[in-house]
Amino acid sequence: MNAPTEPTRKLRVATTSLAGCFGCHMSFLDIDERLFDLLPLIEFDRTPLTDIKHCGPCDIGIVEGGICNAENVHVLREFRANCKVLIAIGACAVTGGLPAQRNHLDLADCLQEVYVTEVSLSKGGIPNDPELPLPLDKVHPIHEVVKVDYFIPGCPPSADAIWKFLTDLIAGRTPKLGHGLISYD
């Protein structure tokens, strides 16, 4: 598919990875040479690619990962406050994903097991540095904390799915993935 025609102004895009593994960001970069078609259309605000620390007013916010600690909540709210369109990308942002597999366990038991009980893992007690954000008792998909406009499922979504979605969105069409591009795994 060809990229949409160049708009009068570049769309400002912010991305972040919360309780995720950056796999969705890697899959985004996996659109490869199509990045050259995309870059005339967009410019980046806060993203791991620019290392800007706070999100300013943006057209599109793309959030990877679910919500597992207090900092995730702050970052997500900053994105929602600044982005006209907020997109949840990947299984973790959409469903909680792998981190949410701890949800049927007690958080204190998890920390105890990892940092105290299990000899091969323990490194001197549960970390309590004030710089560390406090974990939440459960991991949540991001739509449980803020309103989300679009969802791209997948672990990660394929580069083709991300490309199809973004080009539809930038061209002003309702993004539609269809068979082969929509995937939950």
Binding site: V94, T95, P141, E144, P153, I182, Y184
Partner: peptide
């Protein structure tokens, strides 16, 4: 889910 275009569970997950 794929065929109906379900992109998210939408509801609060019960876990």
């Amino acid at each position: 889910g794929y065929d109906l275009g379900v992109m998210t569970a939408g509801f609060r997950h019960l876990f």
